[in-house]
Design a protein around this nucleic acid. Structure first.
Length: 486
RNA sequence: GGCGACAUAGCCAAGUGGUAAGGCAGAGGACUGCAAAUCCUCCACUCCCCGGUUCAAAUCCGGGUGUCGCCUCCA
């Protein structure tokens, strides 16, 4: 399979460090707020990468960190008058609520900086000892000019960076491009003891320390958003390779941005959408589907209309699943001569197409188009079906169902239980749901009686009225089907 | 200023040398009491513009225009 590697700027045949095993490290959020859609893209995308490798039979170690200690967390905690780690912990809990909604599986480890201070200190110490870093008044800086390969990921020359430095130079640094490994604590700031005095880790060092701890050197995939290429990942490479003397990561994968009105969505621009707020209006699977419907390296513009349009497409796939299950529920009947042989044959090609798409740098947009092709094929086969199901068609439908499930295992856009089309009413679990559904069944029954009497005025009034409440009724030869409006 | 990415129909979006996937919207038809859902048909002589290479280019090369991003915390 081919994977685009940022460090060489082109696709490359993927070869894991060890056959059959893959280690992935993805940079997670700084937890001082709820996550926004821009954070969700790498979560969903790399989750899909991980799912696909598993599907391919690899043993995957998937690590995603939380930055639970940094300047923004400290200032936010100060505003709210609570302990920074408590604040960060709260948002980590909220993070998981959102990631669950997006069908993102838990990582094998979710390391936090605050719990890896000894690892960070050991690494910084190594860098100081071997001359890659220097200490100034309790701060420790990495000396960029000591690392010959600096700039290899982002394709920049150190000279250019000096020329373009926009920020006031910290006079204590030997060179403007040097960056902090350890920051001494100002009065009142949380801190840990270290050989250089009380302080806390710089931003970049945590990812180096934790990825190396869990995955070792030269691990397979390091991922994150495009904006992390420089300086974050560039610095990670420098400090990691300077510390270990070995290659850091083999493949660097970076997802493109979510934009709003063609502008980058970001916390600093203030034009971000919280996942939480989007989830209040749209199902998590739809958000996930939307995020995967564009190739991960392309920018993705977000607005309600685009999400809705994607929703109508997703609905088509779900409808197909529902029709498929309805057909499978029919009693078995006689083999009919005209059973569509092409159907079975067409099915065979879908799995190959799906894998080919995913093998080509995780082309989820193309992979999803294969799901649409499958849906059409299923719908066509089911369309002319009578009251009974011939055995050969049953076999083919079961095969199609297996394909849907396989694809879904990777893409993760619907939950298995939802395949039947049994959609729960909004926010009414348990008894209340039973009540709501009971009322719904009753009103449908009444409407059927009206239809029997050809009282179309009453029948239509019920259908229209119920639609305003968000329930769509569909009359079919087999009876009435209802579903929640998206 | 330095570095980089992208430009495909009304919209979203695949496609990196062989003659334009898929989805949404739209038009017509089948089905339906009418709808909905579903199916069938149609919907880019053309891929930002201009040159070039080639038997052949949306795809490669050169130039131009436009948009976006990184260089500062950011996924």
């Amino acid at each position: 399979m081919e994977v685009y590697n940022t460090i060489i700027r082109r696709k490359q045949t993927f070869q894991p460090r060890e056959p059959g095993k893959i280690g992935i490290y993805v940079c997670g959020p700084t937890t001082y707020n709820y996550i926004h859609l821009g954070n969700a893209r790498p979560m969903v995308f790399f989750d899909t990468v991980r799912r696909y490798f598993k599907y391919k039979g690899y043993e995957v170690a998937y690590i995603q960190n939380f930055t639970d200690m940094d300047d923004k967390i400290i200032s936010r905690a100060r505003e709210e008058g609570i302990d920074p780690l408590v604040l960060a912990g709260n948002y980590i809990a909220e993070y998981f609520k959102d990631s669950d909604s997006l069908n993102v599986l838990r990582a094998d480890h979710h390391p936090k900086v605050s719990e890896h201070i000894p690892d960070v200190i050991a690494m910084v110490d190594t860098l100081v000892q071997n001359g890659s870093a220097y200490v100034v008044d309790g701060d420790v800086y990495f000396e960029v000019k000591k690392f010959a390969g600096y700039g290899k990921l982002s394709g920049r020359a150190v000279e250019d960076m000096r020329a373009g430095a926009r920020v006031d130079v910290d006079g204590r640094k030997r060179d403007p491009v040097d960056f902090a490994l350890w920051k001494s604590a100002k009065p009142g700031e949380p801190s840990w003891d270290s050989p250089w005095g009380p302080g806390r880790p710089g931003w970049h060092i945590e990812c180096s320390a934790m990825s190396l701890k869990y995955l070792g050197t030269n691990f397979d995939i390091h991922g994150g958003g495009f904006d992390l290429i420089f300086p974050h990942h560039e610095n990670e490479i420098a400090q990691s390779e300077a510390a270990t003397g070995e290659p850091f990561a083999r493949y660097w994968m970076h997802n493109g941005f979510i934009t709003v009105n063609e502008e980058k969505m970001s916390k600093s621009l203030g034009n971000f959408f919280l996942v939480r707020d989007i989830l209040a209006k749209y199902p998590g699977e739809l958000v996930r589907f939307f995020l995967l419907s564009t190739h991960y390296r392309s920018p993705l513009d977000f607005d309600d209309e685009k999400l809705s349009a994607a929703g109508r497409g997703l609905e088509r796939i779900k409808t197909s699943m529902r029709l498929l299950n309805e057909a499978l529920a029919k009693p078995e009947g006689k083999e009919s001569a005209e059973t569509d042989a092409e159907f079975g044959a067409a099915l065979d090609s879908f799995n190959d197409s799906f894998e080919a798409a995913m093998d080509d740098d995780f082309n989820t947009a193309l992979a999803i188009s294969v799901i649409f092709d499958l849906a059409r094929e299923v719908n066509t086969a089911v369309q002319r079906l009578g009251p009974v199901l011939p055995p050969s068609l049953r076999a083919a439908l079961l095969k199609a169902k297996g394909l849907f499930n396989t694809f879904n295992e990777v893409i993760g856009i619907f939950k298995a239980e939802q395949n039947t089309g049994e959609v729960l009413l909004d926010g009414v679990p348990g008894n209340a749901g039973g009540l709501a559904e009971g009322l719904l069944d009753l009103i449908i029954e009444v409407r059927q009686e009206a239809r029997k009497k050809k009282d179309w005025a009453v029948a239509d009034r019920i259908r229209d009225g119920i639609k305003d409440l968000g329930i769509i009724l569909e009359d079919t030869p087999q009876g009435v089907r209802w579903k929640k409006q998206l």
